[in-house]
Structure formats: C-alpha cells, structure tokens
Amino acid sequence: NITNLCPFDEVFNATRFASVYAWNRKRISNCVADYSVLYNFAPFFAFKCYGVSPTKLNDLCFTNVYADSFVIRGNEVSQIAPGQTGNIADYNYKLPDDFTGCVIAWNSNKLDSKVGGNYNYLYRLFRKSNLKPFERDISTEIYQAGNKPCNGVAGFNCYFPLRSYGFRPTYGVGHQPYRVVVLSFELLHAPATVCGPKKST
C-alpha cells in the first residue's frame, strides 16, 4: 500500500531547467500520482495528452512514469508532439509516433530571460542525422557541412553544433522561453508502482 505522493513538484518547480539538447529525465516510481494538482495549476500554456485522457489519469496505474524537462522557445512547443519535424524534434528531443503521455508547457519569461540576454539555454542546430525517439545527444563535436574534414576547428563550413537562445524579456511570445515537462507513461508486464489516488488503496 503506497502512500507517499509522487515528487512532481520537484520537477515542475525546479529552480533551473535543462537546455533542450541535454534534456533532463527523472524516473518516478513507487508513489501516488495526483495529476489533478498539475491539471489545476493555472499558468499552463499547453497540457496535451496522447493515448490517454488527462482527466482519467487519476484512475490509472503505470509501471513507471518518466518526467523529461527542458526549455525551448514558445514557437517550438508545437514540435513536442508525435510525428513532428523541425530543429527541436529532429536534433534535440524526439517523441515516438506511438507516444503515451502528456506534454505540459508554460511561459517562463520572468524566470529564464535576462536584460542583455540569458545565454545559458542551448539547443542543437546541426546534426548529421535525426534523433531516434528519446535519444539524447550531448556531443559538442564540430559539425562538418562541406567535404573538408574540420579536425575539431570551427570555421568555413565547420560549425559548433550548439546555439544559444539568448532570451531577453522584451522578445515577442514566440521567442520567449517556455518550460516543458513531458510525462511518459510506461506500461510493462510488471507490477504497477505509480497509481492515481483512487487506485492506491
């Protein structure tokens, strides 16, 4: 009989979020998941679920829940969905086509923008091939755009693969920082350890 609540607040209220190319993952297990707390949290810009209804989450049990978190621009949030393409979905964070879970995003301009620009948040701009679902690539190898080998030196046709967002408070909404948490639900042939409040007695 599990009684402790799942530590969703640790994920959602973290002081610093990860850059999207180096997205953070927390495994959540052996706890009671009260999703209504999240669902009623006012400032969400997006709360979209795939393969599961957000209002039914509290009735369900899962083997594991993974909480992935990172920061992207407002106009990139739409790429955090199954079957998407674009710089983020291709080179930074890719969801599987059969994704079961929820994508939760909110504007973090007050936290993550600075006058003069916040350059701490990076994304991958160049990559030889697209990421596989949930693949994480933190390499900083110089990207070779031409035929000539770069030998690890940036220059003509040789690019550092990461780019900084440089968030400023005055940017338009599409270019403002958004914090994103992706909850993915794993249902294995194993005992369920993460259940909603109704199922955990």
Rank of each mutant, 00 (worst) to 15 (best):
N64V: 11
N75G: 15
Y66M: 09
Q84S: 14
G116R: 08
A42S: 10
G196T: 12
P43W: 07
A145K: 05
V11T: 05
F167K: 01
V32M: 10
F70D: 00
G74M: 04
S113I: 01
P161W: 04
D34L: 05
V65K: 04
V71Q: 01
S184M: 08
V182E: 00
I104K: 02
L183N: 00
K128T: 12
K110V: 08
A18I: 04
Y159T: 00
R124D: 00
R163G: 15
P177M: 02
Q79E: 07
C6L: 05
F134L: 09
K26L: 09
I138R: 10
K132N: 11
N120K: 13
T201P: 14
N118E: 09
Y171W: 05
P161V: 04
Q84A: 15
Q176E: 01
T3R: 11
G155W: 05
D98M: 08
R27V: 15
L183V: 07
G116E: 13
A18K: 07
N40E: 14
R163W: 15
N24L: 05
T15K: 13
G117A: 05
Q144A: 10
D98Q: 10
A18V: 07
Y39P: 08
D98Y: 09
S69G: 03
K56C: 07
T201F: 13
V115T: 11
T100R: 13
I80G: 01
N13C: 07
D90M: 09
I88W: 02
C150D: 00
R16L: 09
V181I: 08
L183E: 00
V103I: 09
C150N: 01
S78P: 13
I88G: 02
D90W: 08
P149Q: 11
T85R: 15
G116Y: 06
R163S: 15
E135M: 08
Y178K: 04
V77W: 05
Y66Q: 08
S200P: 14
L131K: 02
Y93L: 02
H189M: 11
F70G: 01
C158Q: 02
K148S: 13
R27G: 07
L60S: 10
S184W: 14
R16H: 14
E135F: 06
V65A: 10
W23M: 02
F12Y: 04
C6S: 07
F44Y: 13
S164Y: 05
F99T: 01
V194M: 12
Y165Q: 03
F47K: 09
L95N: 01
H189Y: 12
Y143W: 04
D59F: 08
N118D: 07
L131Y: 03
N87A: 15
N58T: 10
F41M: 15
L183S: 00
R73C: 09
V11K: 03
R179T: 00
V20K: 01
N64I: 08
E76D: 15
Y66V: 12
N1T: 12
C195Q: 12
G174F: 08
T201K: 15
K56T: 12
E76W: 03
K48I: 06
K110D: 10
T201N: 14
F45M: 14
A46E: 14
Y21H: 10
D90K: 13
I72R: 01
L183D: 00
N120E: 14
K94W: 00
D137R: 03
N157S: 02
Q84G: 12
L183A: 02
K148Y: 12
L95G: 01
Y121C: 06
Y123E: 05
T55S: 14
L95D: 00
V71S: 02
L38A: 07
L125Q: 10
A22P: 01
Y119M: 09
S19F: 02
F160V: 15
G172K: 00
F99L: 05
P54N: 10
E76R: 03
E10A: 11
G117I: 03
Y91E: 01
L95C: 05
I72E: 00
N92A: 03
K114P: 04
N107G: 07
V37S: 14
A22Q: 11
V37L: 13
V65C: 10
R168W: 05
L162T: 06
A14V: 08
N157W: 03
G116S: 13
L188M: 12
V20A: 08
I142M: 13
C158H: 02
D97C: 07
F8K: 04
N30Q: 08
L95A: 02
N30S: 09
P54L: 14
